[in-house]
Design a protein around this nucleic acid. Structure first.
Ligand SMILES: [Mn+2]
Ligand SMILES: [Mn+2]
Ligand SMILES: [Zn+2]
Ligand SMILES: [Zn+2]
Lengths: 144, 144
DNA sequence: TGTCCACTTTAGAATTGTTCTAATCTACTT
DNA sequence: AAGTAGATTAGAACAATTCTAAAGTGGACA
């Protein structure tokens, strides 16, 4: 990865984000953070992020991709979306929201919380606490 | 599995169900169908069904468990619930409905469709057809 | 600025749920 | 009863993810 492409301001911002999350600011983490948080919200899998990193000239092992994604997840910098038992999806949008999942393309699209009106939800069985509500709208490419 | 425990009526009913689905009525399929469809709606994983089969005295291979679950799924006798990337859950309730997922216990509970009021949903992006809407309410055991 | 050490990265092995292979068996047709 | 397409099986293969343990590095501190 070409670190000349990152301004000192970008590096400071990303380093700060890592430190605030209790993570050392290392070269692989900075580069991955730049890919993940550099522009808009993203959904990635370990594989797509790895390929993107390689395309950006960053030589990083698969283990580091997994370590980093899981550390970012634990630190609250990423969320996880479970829509497919074949792969884990990580989401840079950590606010409460929902998803379209295009099954043909294994692609996720955010749905802002206010576009899904869940006007009534059943109560959680007693003894259990609500941990989250996930709405997934599954889509298929329309036949031609 | 003790087939004396099944009345001829039960066997006829299950055989009919298999035939109607385009599947031959074999001993392993009948026994698994009995476990799955014999009483109320169920959520199983390959592992839980395999153990249940063994406990019922049915000697059936893991490959047959997977084959059967996937054939029943393709035939529309089962549905699949994706809530956990560690395991596939199969559901004998093939009507449209939602789920509580108790993460601590890897256990699913049905939520009837009418208990979740999705009063507004965003439109599918053009070029895509709606394939389904899944609502998962994640629960955790309440702290003592 | 150099030392040190806890933390990080890595290659490759291990793990685990699931699928595949290809040999044997069986339900159903004739 | 024989023939055959489909079913079952043990075990190998597969693929996403995690683990291991050895080598590397960030940053605190002298
Ligand atoms: Mn995970
Ligand atoms: Mn599946
Ligand atoms: Zn998202
Ligand atoms: Zn269900």
């Amino acid at each position: 990865m070409n670190f000349d492409a990152l301004t000192p301001e970008q590096i400071d911002r990303l380093s700060g984000k890592l430190r605030a999350a209790g993570l050392r600011s290392t070269r692989p983490r900075l580069a991955l953070a730049h890919l993940l948080f550099g522009a808009g919200n993203r959904h990635v899998t370990a594989e797509t992020l790895h390929e993107e990193a390689r395309n950006a000239g960053l030589s990083v092992s698969q283990a580091t991709i997994y370590n980093t994604l899981n550390q970012f997840l634990s630190a609250g910098l990423l969320s996880e979306v479970i829509v497919d038992h074949a792969r884990s999806y990580f989401d840079t949008n950590v606010t409460d929201h929902h998803h379209f999942f295009i099954e043909d393309e294994t692609r996720l699209i955010d749905i802002p919380l206010d576009e899904v009106a869940l006007s009534s939800l059943p109560n959680a069985p007693s003894g259990y606490d609500l941990a989250g509500v996930d709405v997934v709208i599954r889509l298929l490419k329309a036949p031609a």
